[in-house]
Design a protein around this nucleic acid. Sequence first.
DNA 1: CTGTTAGCGCATTCAA
DNA 2: TTGAATGCGCTAACAG
Lengths: 350, 350
Amino acid sequence: MATARKHGGGSSPAPVQAASVGATIYSVAERAGVSIATVSRVLQGAGTVSAKTTQKVLDAVEELNYVPLGAARSLAVRHHEAHGLVLPELTGPYYSELLMGFESRAAELGQSVTLMLTDGKADLARAVRQLATHVDAIAVLGSAAMPPAVARALHGQKPVVIIAGAPQEGIESVRAENAHSAEQLTEHVLAHGRTRLVFVGDPEGAPDITERHAGFVAAHRARGLEPAPPVRVPFREGEGEAVAERILAGEIDADALVCANDELALAIMTHLQDAGRDVPGDIAVVGWDDVMTSRYVRPGLTTVRQPVHELGVIAAERLHQRVSGGQPVLEPQILPTQVVIRGSCGCGHR
Amino acid sequence: MATARKHGGGSSPAPVQAASVGATIYSVAERAGVSIATVSRVLQGAGTVSAKTTQKVLDAVEELNYVPLGAARSLAVRHHEAHGLVLPELTGPYYSELLMGFESRAAELGQSVTLMLTDGKADLARAVRQLATHVDAIAVLGSAAMPPAVARALHGQKPVVIIAGAPQEGIESVRAENAHSAEQLTEHVLAHGRTRLVFVGDPEGAPDITERHAGFVAAHRARGLEPAPPVRVPFREGEGEAVAERILAGEIDADALVCANDELALAIMTHLQDAGRDVPGDIAVVGWDDVMTSRYVRPGLTTVRQPVHELGVIAAERLHQRVSGGQPVLEPQILPTQVVIRGSCGCGHR
DNA sequence: CTGTTAGCGCATTCAA
DNA sequence: TTGAATGCGCTAACAG
């Protein structure tokens, strides 16, 4: 009688039982009248198994509704075939697109993706360590408030790539170009004859924003102008209304707003319009990200499009390379962005 | 000399090595001068270990930068401590919010979440089976084009819950209320004196849409009216423009559009407006989902808000209950929705 | 082409 | 309070 061991039913022939929850490679082997090695071979497509035997195994698998235990395989092959992705949250299209890119590439490479959101997590370090036990490699979004210490601890244990974050010693990173396009965008607004531009967003809030602000400053300097200090606000939607109120109240004097992202820009623009201001007549507004809404509002929002999906794809790609023994690419990879001109900057478009 | 086995360094005392990638419970035990059982105990917080011993272990863990191998633990305890979530894709706020709800609750329950997106996957059945090997339970969004056969196969092996999908024999499901709010919404439009309402969307495309259309029909019948046949289109954004063109061309005769979701409604409304039509003057437009854009366009879009986050929370909750031995709740759980009146239906709001 | 066997790293009895 | 021993289900040599 086939493989006995602690496993097999033991003495009597395998009873014809309905698909049981506990089907293992042993029960399948027994049912098919072969060894577990053979079952493993047909399931992995490895080695050579005769057509007839293959069919027997497949039948047994089907009858038992066998679902292999991933953990056992992972233990044996010593990798999880899973990538971790750490994001702050998922509002707005940015993170979603990134995630879609990441997931699709990971899937193509045969890796599943385990997602972790940091917002609202009390013990982040613990959560990340926990994640690390289940995956082969981890991608972290820069602004995911992950203590640099955690990133460093992970690094050295598992391959890590930072997405859109401040580069850290020895850790791979991939991000979109910011400073140059911000300079371009700002120069475009300046070229419309605007003179009192204000940057809205917190340059210290995230690495991306820091760079965008730097571009804003650079464009001014290039014309020998001194930029006004930024209006430092987090880029949640609610903040936009508050900023609009300050403008309406005359607290902020500006004829153009360069906002850290579209959500902020849209909230401000809509609020100003509802209060009777003309955009871009009285004040121009531009944003960053090219979210869906930016196409629908009137005037259309002038903004910058980032290759977010691509960012996710590359991150997944890099992780896989590293897990497969590839060397880290230490120079940060920087993807180009694109200024999208619509009407809110003062151009004639609608 | 502590535990020798195949593991331990063997003869010489553990060399003081930098954090190595391969640290295992054995190396930690050796370093701390205890047995692996003790290491396991302090790491799991189980059993009673003296303060001094605990500290020795913790130090060793720190020095070695030990990250337990999740697969080994999973194999030993025989569960993955992970939930799977299957979604079609992630555009728009619906799926993201659902995912956020799911992730947050799962995390609270100590479960990690493995995400799978179905769009673009060639062999869905294979992908799902693959997912099943790594998780304890799976939640599937109804419209994730998952063959019912797959759902049934999974069911019986792992707990499954269907989110916003057609209930299937013996499988748990949770969804938002659709028919009643659709009837309310339609009645509201009818009450504005509109007489030529058209439903835009494919009632056979997804269970949710089927129900919304049913509500649309019911509202008509309640007034002794016969509803026009629906304009069957998928609810991608591009379709909206096509529909708008057909309206402008006079192919579709309507004074009010009840759209399957906001994306569709927004695309149509904007396109119509750009062509010079007055909304809601010439034609009213209402949608479903209350996406961000719906608040920003003018007139604001009248729509229906669903408790999407809550849907995710409940799904995660149910899966955990089931994994913990709880019984399935067979009556579908139905969460209430809320009609949000703005201006696009003809009301005075902006 | 197929079977036997030895781990993979951890949790967990059972003894001491 | 601690250690030794066993097995979780699977893969991958190694034999035959």
